[in-house]
Design a protein around this nucleic acid. Structure first.
Length: 714
DNA sequence: TCAGGAATGCTTTTT
DNA sequence: GCATTCCTGA
């Protein structure tokens, strides 16, 4: 490799880049250039005569893969290395070895919404109710506890030993059958089926580990059991694995990530070389100190220092605001101030724990006319009209995809209603046919009258016409489906919302055209599988002059000059759901999440919380996050003189001032107890309690919201 | 068959 | 609070 390029690296980085043969673990703190190390390594490997074809690098998002590809090429590496996410890699492997994996290569990939429909169906089929067996929880158990740990249906049946696990085993079995009937795999199946394939077919394992002579994995701390098994299998022949990661940035335990994978790396590969990258090139010492104070509170960790290399800067700030509207308003104002001082909007990001927090931020930024982007890629693909048109395309590739088929059969309305569908379904299950096959034989279904039969025939004929065009470019087919299915016409007649939907579909067709252009051999199935694996972070456009809003999870791997973290309150961060387990594991993961957020900041960091927040329609008094006290920053609850938002829809404060704020000593009137004086006011937002001593001599403790107290102005 | 309103449920994070 | 599903009437 060219010396001039290597000179850009530190001694430790160089060591990691140039250690070619054998296992290598790069333990790297935030901002230490670990992704850079992988990129340089790819270039160095190719430089030392290794064929790009023999290199496989695994990143966390598609976006990261794309960036890595381009940077490697910029370093002089020829293209051809496989750089992708675990999921994309699995799709490729499963399609290539479909027979051996026992699947049909035209499978659909089911996302959360599809999965939920399937699990609901399974719960119904097993004659269970959704109250005792909530779909979301069942799905979570199946995916993160079972599939990600490579426990398949048979394994689980063998170990189930009480009512709940036995029921779950039945449910799991039924759920897998439903997916199989529809020729669909969910996200976890992609990993599990690949891992099991590699485990069970040594010839496939052999072939792949000969093809990928060098494996590089970024964000190794967030791999789960299935991914670990895949990695292990891929390096079976040579042990040329390079993993980089930081246990302190592990934030995906809840979806099966197993931190032991990185902790036990040296046990798995005893001859591993370990390189530590502790210098931080991203943040000021002020920011790093705060991050360090916070993460030091985690008991379950190996101590690690963050060594700053940048000069001192401004201190991190914690601000408190009256409520979430004031919080977002003041973030907007602060952004304007930064921008006025010359900061570019794309260097500013706002992070939060839950997606719901983006709405108020958007309102504040719209009000203040500041351009922003909400980094939430999957949202686009979750729009109704997008799902509709994609469902048409999915059915063309995978006729067994009943969920997609049911979605489009009467979209737009073509007179095939519930009754008709039920009759066809009954016929299908009686004759052991798929739903589409039953539709094709509809003229033989006696329970149907003439009109529905004709409508079904028309629908089937339309699908068959589309199917003739399935080869080649995707965009023209998508456009044709949009118009000829009647979707376009129905949206055109649906007013402004419809117009918006049309624009979205046009955007999808444009994206498909881009795919056609950039892909050597465009294929509908490949396109559909690719967009199924599209992630939130993939939507981030770092080149546009906009402030970025995203969750703390999405922020992983990114960096910004100026970072805001909003809503740092008990219940939100740490999230209330994280306190359900009896140990501190989940709390520590929440702490790591904040750590990840803080360490994204290069020069300025603004943490905030609101004293009141409306949650699910209830105004609640909040408690500052316990983490705030661990940062060792001075902060007080003083009002910071934020101009109250003057937006027409903003009523929060006024409402609370009159309804929810009483002071001891205040004179009040109750509709039946009459006049009284407030003895004590326990502020819990909407659930506040007042103790009133009435003139009648009685002292009452009242729930404010039911008491109907009014203030008496003296 | 379907639109529209009422009732119910569900709410972390994501590939 | 919002989204989905359920239910009723046309």
């Amino acid at each position: 490799m060219q010396n001039s390029l290597l000179q850009q690296l530190t001694t430790s980085q160089k060591k990691a880049v140039l250690h070619i043969e054998g296992p290598l673990l790069v333990l790297a703190g935030p901002g230490s250039g670990k992704t850079r190390v992988i990129t340089y390594r790819i270039a160095a490997l190719i430089d030392s005569g290794i064929q790009p074809y023999n290199i496989c690098a695994i990143t966390f998002t598609n976006k990261a893969a794309e960036e890595m590809r381009q940077r490697a090429i910029a370093l002089g590496a020829s293209a051809g290395a496989r750089i992708s996410t675990f999921h994309s890699l699995c799709v490729r492997i499963l399609r290539q070895y479909a027979d051996k994996a026992g699947i049909n290569p035209n499978f659909s990939i089911y996302d959360q919404a599809d999965q939920t429909r399937c699990i609901k169906q399974a719960i119904k089929d097993c004659e269970l109710d959704t109250t005792n067996f909530p779909p979301a929880r069942m799905l979570d158990a199946i995916s993160s506890r079972l599939k990600n740990n490579l426990i398949d249906v048979d394994n689980f049946k063998a170990i189930a030993d009480d009512f709940f696990t036995e029921t779950l085993a039945k449910l799991y079995a039924r759920y897998q059958d439903i997916l199989a009937e529809k020729n669909a795999l969910d996200f976890d199946d992609l990993l599990m089926k690949t891992a099991l394939l590699l485990q069970n077919c040594s010839d496939v394992c052999c072939e792949l580990s000969n093809r990928f002579k060098f494996l590089l994995i970024d964000e190794y701390q967030d791999t789960n059991r299935a991914q670990y098994v895949i990695a292990k299998a891929l390096v079976w022949q040579h042990n040329n694995i390079c993993a980089t990661g930081d246990p302190d940035q592990s934030i995906y335990r809840w979806r099966g990530a197993d931190i032991r994978n990185i902790i036990n790396f040296e046990k798995d590969w005893p001859d591993a070389m370990v390189v530590k990258l502790e210098e931080n090139f991203r943040s000021t010492p002020n920011i790093l100190a705060v991050a360090d104070n916070l993460i030091a509170q985690n008991q379950n960790r190996k101590e690690k220092k963050l060594v700053p290399t940048k000069p001192h800067g401004t201190d991190a700030v914690i601000s408190s605001f009256e409520d979430e509207a004031e919080e977002t308003q003041s973030i907007a104002l602060k952004v304007q101030e930064l921008s006025g001082k010359g900061a570019s909007l794309q260097d500013i990001a706002v992070f939060y724990r839950v997606n719901a927090q983006s709405r108020l931020l958007e309102e504040a930024f719209i009000h203040n006319k500041i351009p922003y982007q909400v980094v939430r890629g999957v949202e686009f693909y979750n729009r109704k009209e997008i799902r509709d048109i994609l469902a048409y395309l999915k059915v063309l590739v995978n006729p067994d995809d009943e969920i997609a088929l049911l979605r489009i059969i009467n979209t737009p309305a073509r007179g095939i209603g519930k009754t008709t569908i039920d009759r066809v379904r009954a016929y299908a299950s009686l004759h052991k046919l798929s739903f589409l096959e039953a539709l094709k034989k509809s003229e033989h279904i006696d329970s149907l009258s003439k009109a529905p039969k004709e409508k079904i025939a028309g629908f089937v004929k339309m699908l068959e016409m589309f199917k003739k065009d399935i080869k080649g470019d995707v965009a023209p087919l998508a456009e044709r489906v949009f118009i000829e299915s009647g979707l376009e016409k129905s949206l055109r007649e649906a007013g402004p919302d419809g117009q918006n939907a049309i624009e979205n579909i046009n955007e999808l067709i444009n994206a498909a055209a881009l795919y056609d252009k950039q892909t050597e051999q465009p294929e509908l199935i490949d396109y559909l599988q690719q967009i199924s694996l599209f992630s939130d972070a993939d939507a981030y456009d770092g080149s546009s002059e906009k402030v970025a809003f995203m969750t703390l999870h999405t922020a992983k791997g990114l960096e910004f000059e100026n970072v805001f973290i909003a809503g740092v309150e008990q219940g939100l961060l740490p999230h209330e759901r994280s306190s359900e387990s009896e140990n501190d594991d989940e709390l520590e993961e929440e702490r790591r999440l904040l750590f990840v957020g803080i360490t994204r900041a290069k020069t300025s960091l603004h943490i905030s919380y609101a004293r009141y927040r409306t949650i699910r329609g209830q105004l609640l008094r909040t408690i500052p996050s316990q983490f705030l006290f661990e940062l060792e920053i001075d902060f007080s609850e003083s009002n910071q003189n934020v101009p109250r938002p003057s937006w027409p829809w903003y009523h929060g404060l006024e409402a609370r001032d009159t309804l929810y704020a009483f002071a001891a000593g205040e004179l009040v009137r109750h509709k039946s107890f009459g006049l009284g004086r407030v003895k004590e006011f326990i502020d819990m937002g909407e659930n506040s309690v007042v103790v009133v001593e009435f003139n009648s001599g009685q002292t009452k403790t009242l729930m404010l919201k039911y008491a109907g107290l009014s203030k008496v102005n003296v």
